[in-house]
Design a protein around this nucleic acid. Structure first.
Length: 480
RNA sequence: GGCCCCAUGGUCAAGUGGUUAAGACACCGCCCUUUCAAGGCGGUAACCCGGGUUCGAAUCCCGGUGGGGUCACCA
């Protein structure tokens, strides 16, 4: 049985890279009929917050990533917040100390900083030299008497080679000589990441650890802990990072990096999922658009790329536009409603009439946008009381001849039966012949008169949305 | 700097010893449309460098170079 997990630390909103890790874990679990667990790694007391935790969980749900076991939903291996499992870590830390795999370290941060500086000054690698490895009971007593609070360090064996058979990278080896004794329990009794992650993964029965590549160099430390405790080592798969345009790890300075940023900007969850899936994974076919179900069906670890991927906003935009244009209209209307409300085009408790109009407006304008938030600006022509005329539009309305033509059109508008799109289309088509002029004198001036612009949705759509009275009013308004 | 990972068009990426080196985004052109977009068709554009191995390397090996990650009482 495959059991995987996503274990974010709640120190900020869900990052785009974290979202992809979560997605890959989710896809892998579903594909293999396994279990997907979400656990919160909140051992950094300084930076962790419940708000961040909430944000992360909400972002995951928004993306359509659900979990079978973990925070909120519970399960047999809980609790799923590390700060609630402290006694568990203490138990194993004691065991490691008793069996000689770990020891108390009384060095203060100042002393460690001093050591670091000295090594650096000598041109050597800053690392912990193992000063407290063999403290005598008397020395320990002395430190304790001074009121020092010890940390617990893992005793890294010398001269060993740690081999990882990574599911995406293949065989990766590390020498233990390059690893100094590292802290597994902080002086306040809270475990560090490298320790807690092992205990949790073991006690939660994790079979595959699928995570970002930044964790690859931590893996040998973790393996050492697995071995010391006699635990079975899970499979590892390290996914390469998502880089910004400047080819460094995506961070705040690259602009929008959190899922909520994209949500606010009007990206659809299915578009973001689709895009993220394609970033670092390839179906091996020429298809590009996938539903979550299709992704689950096709996902496999051996099609995950080893090289880092640059976040390509253009492609996300294309995918998002695709979904906006091709999804069920009612869904797009529902999702875009808040954007229309916040700019005042639609009231907070929309009437049926408002919703009918909004539906037609969205249908006509969704062809032009990349995100939902752009919809209102394209829809402005349907909601503004006073039109704003572009310079180019004015030139179409300047000539006396076209003004006369428009006057005639205005009077004919009420003759259109039903005023549905089909009828309007027919009306527009016959217009030039009826008026005895070329189409050039009709369509562009009419568009300019109706919208104040030279670009926009099909004229018949524009008129159908405005309705006969408003259409007539707008034209006649030009002559007042 | 030590250690680790990576290297196909501008970007995402197929490719696993013999291919005209796919496809998508972006870009350019044409068509469609009396607008723009969308859509359709077409085009420009790539195997980091140097050595091997081999009849034959984008594909295998070694070495450079470049990029990234990591070296915390952060995760």
């Amino acid at each position: 049985m495959v059991r995987v997990r996503f274990a974010p630390s709640p120190t900020g909103p869900l990052h785009i890279g974290g979202a992809r890790s979560a997605l890959f874990n989710y896809l892998f679990a579903r594909k293999n009929n396994g279990v997907f667990i979400v656990r919160i790694e909140d051992t950094d007391l300084e930076r962790s917050s419940r708000e961040s935790e909430k944000n992360i969980l909400e972002s995951l749900k928004w993306l359509g990533i659900t979990w079978d076991e973990g925070i909120e939903v519970g399960g047999e291996n809980g609790p799923y917040r590390q700060t609630e499992r402290l006694n568990l870590y203490q138990k194993y830390a004691r065991k490691l100390i008793e069996e000689g795999f770990a020891y108390y370290c009384f060095c203060t941060e100042e002393e460690l900083e001093e050591e670091r500086k000295n090594l650096l000054a000598k041109g050597e690698m800053p690392r912990y030299l193992g000063k407290c490895r063999n403290l005598t009971p008397a020395e320990k007593e002395k430190y304790l008497a001074e009121g020092r609070k010890p940390t617990v360090r893992f005793k890294v064996p010398a001269g060993r080679t740690i081999v990882i058979n990574d599911l995406v990278r293949g065989v990766v080896t590390f020498e233990t000589d390059g690893i100094g004794d590292f802290i597994i329990v902080k002086s306040d009794g809270i475990p560090t990441y490298n320790f807690a992650v092992v205990i949790d993964d073991v006690t939660m029965g994790i079979t595959h650890v699928l995570r970002g590549e930044e964790h690859l160099s931590n893996t040998p430390r973790q393996i050492l802990i697995y071995e010391a405790l006699g635990f079975k080592i899970p499979e590892f798969a390290h996914i390469s990072l998502i880089l910004g345009k400047d080819r460094t790890k995506m961070s705040k300075r690259h602009g929008a990096t959190s899922v909520e940023n994209y949500r606010e900007k009007g990206y659809l969850p299915e578009a973001l999922v689709n895009f993220l899936a394609l970033l670092g994974w390839s179906p091996g076919t020429e298809e590009e658009i996938f539903t979550m179900e299709q992704l689950i069906e096709r996902f496999s670890l051996d099609r995950v790329a080893k090289n880092p991927a640059i976040f390509d906003l253009d492609k996300l935009n294309w995918i998002n536009g695709y979904y906006i244009r091709n999804s069920e209209l009612s869904r797009i209307v529902e999702l875009s409603l808040p954007y229309f409300q916040s700019c005042g085009y639609v009231s907070n408790n929309p009437t049926d009439e408002e919703m009918r109009k909004l539906t037609k407006v969205v249908e006509a304008t969704r062809e032009y946008v990349v995100t939902l938030s752009e919809l209102p600006e394209h829809a402005a022509i349907f909601y503004q009381k006073e039109l704003i005329f572009e310079e180019e539009a004015k030139t179409f309305l300047a000539e006396e001849e076209t003004r006369n033509i428009l006057r005639k059109i205005a009077d004919k508008i009420k003759e259109i039966p039903g005023f549905e799109e089909e009828e309007i289309k027919g009306f527009l088509k016959k217009l030039p012949k009826e008026l005895g002029v070329g189409g050039k004198k009709v369509y562009m001036p009419l568009r300019a008169a109706l919208t104040g612009k030279t670009h926009g949705p099909e004229l018949y759509q524009v008129m159908a949305i405005l309705g006969p009275e408003e259409a007539e009013r707008r034209i006649k308004n030009l002559f007042n």
